[in-house]
């Protein structure tokens, strides 16, 4: 087993905490916007911030992320502008996907953050394919396939794990085991003792880590990334965490799990744990906490205001991005549409 102890400078620790806290506050605001009818749909990452930020923190700038539903925070950390993140959920003209994707399905090319399709587990073979290409081209970057616990029951998971093992591709499988695949509990998901142990069957290493401890996640992920980068093949990291909120804004978890269970996990809240660590280290205090919360909330509200001010994408963009050169009949339709929309 490689060395998984984290080594981070004080500045890095504070940067990590800032990202974790921002994600927590952003999710609260976004869910409120959804309830108020200002965005259509949202999936919060509440309870899983340490797993998301801690893992993405271990990646290099040129590495590629193939995310699942809850890794938008990783894109933000890698430079995805907050206004674009919020605009994506509104599908307005500031949304890089021009309002064509489901809300909460982000992508950002400059950060090598690939768009997710809602279909479960499809991104895992994509990550393996991309990693294989990196290997063939002799690049030193790696790919990460994020997934939830539910994805491990899909055929795609098997295919990807097997292929990655056989061809020793530089990929890290990161499973955010949050105990619930919408309403299916992990106990009904697999009879294995852990998800990490599944790696053994495919001929490579797996590790389970406390997913609510950002530093443990970072340590394990750093070792896994290094392993892949060194040409030693794939690695599976299982972060044991908990989805504190609903699966999405359309879900009501009170229908299938008890409040007691949620309360039990609340004691292991990843944001509070990181905050406590910083307090113990002497690099944090209540005053700094309040100031940071105020600053982040301001940043979020300002971004919301900008996003809400943006008009919808121009209707003519409907015709874009399908063919590199537009076909004549599409051009005709586009011209017709523009003509119709001109005032008489």
């Amino acid at each position: 087993m490689p060395d998984v102890s984290p080594s981070l400078s004080k500045a890095d620790l504070l940067r990590m905490y800032r990202e974790i806290l921002r994600l927590r506050l952003l999710d609260q605001r976004m869910l409120t916007l959804q309830r108020q009818g200002r965005i259509g749909f949202y999936g919060t990452a509440t309870g899983e911030e340490a797993a998301i930020i801690g893992s993405a923190f271990a990646l290099g700038k040129d590495d590629w992320i193939f995310p699942a539903l809850r890794q938008g925070g990783a894109a933000l950390m890698r430079g995805y502008p907050l206004v674009e993140y919020i605009s994506q959920c509104m599908g307005n003209s500031l949304d890089g996907t021009k309002g064509r994707q489901m809300p909460s399905h982000y992508c950002y090319r400059p950060a090598n953050f690939v768009s997710w399709s809602s279909c479960i587990a499809t991104q895992i073979p994509h990550a393996v394919g991309a990693a294989w290409a990196m290997k063939l081209q002799g690049h030193k970057n790696i790919a990460v396939a994020y997934m939830g616990d539910g994805a491990t029951s899909e055929g795609d998971f098997h295919v990807a794990m097997n292929f990655a093992g056989v061809f020793k591709v530089p990929v890290v499988f990161f499973c955010q085991n949050n105990q619930w695949s919408i309403s299916v509990n992990i106990k009904q998901q697999t009879a294995s003792e852990s998800i990490a142990m599944k790696a053994i069957a495919y001929g490579f290493q797996g590790i389970s880590v406390d997913g609510n401890d950002a530093l443990s996640v970072f340590g394990a992920m750093s070792a896994a990334v290094q392993h892949a980068r060194d040409g030693k093949g794939p690695f599976l990291v299982e972060a044991i965490t908990y989805r504190m909120g609903a699966h999405s804004s359309s879900d009501d978890p009170r229908m299938y799990r008890s409040d007691e269970e949620v309360e039990e996990w609340r004691k292991r809240d990843p944001v509070e744990r990181m905050q406590k660590y910083l307090l113990d280290q002497g690099s944090w205090d209540a005053e700094k906490q309040t100031a940071l919360e105020t600053e982040l909330n301001r940043e979020i509200l300002d971004a919301v205001a900008i996003a809400e001010g943006a008009p919808p994408p121009p209707v003519e963009t409907l015709f874009d991005d399908v063919f590199s050169t537009m076909l004549p009949h599409l051009q005709e339709q586009k011209d017709g549409l523009i003509r119709c929309r001109q005032p008489l």
Binding site: R38, G336, P343
Partner: peptide
């Protein structure tokens, strides 16, 4: 109210209804 925008789906002014026979039905 931006709150209304996603709900009410207001028709943008530019999409005003073209008259029949104006040779450009949408």
């Amino acid at each position: 109210a931006p709150a209304q925008a996603p709900v009410k789906k207001e028709t943008p002014a530019a999409e005003s209804k073209p008259a029949a026979g104006s040779s450009r039905s949408l």
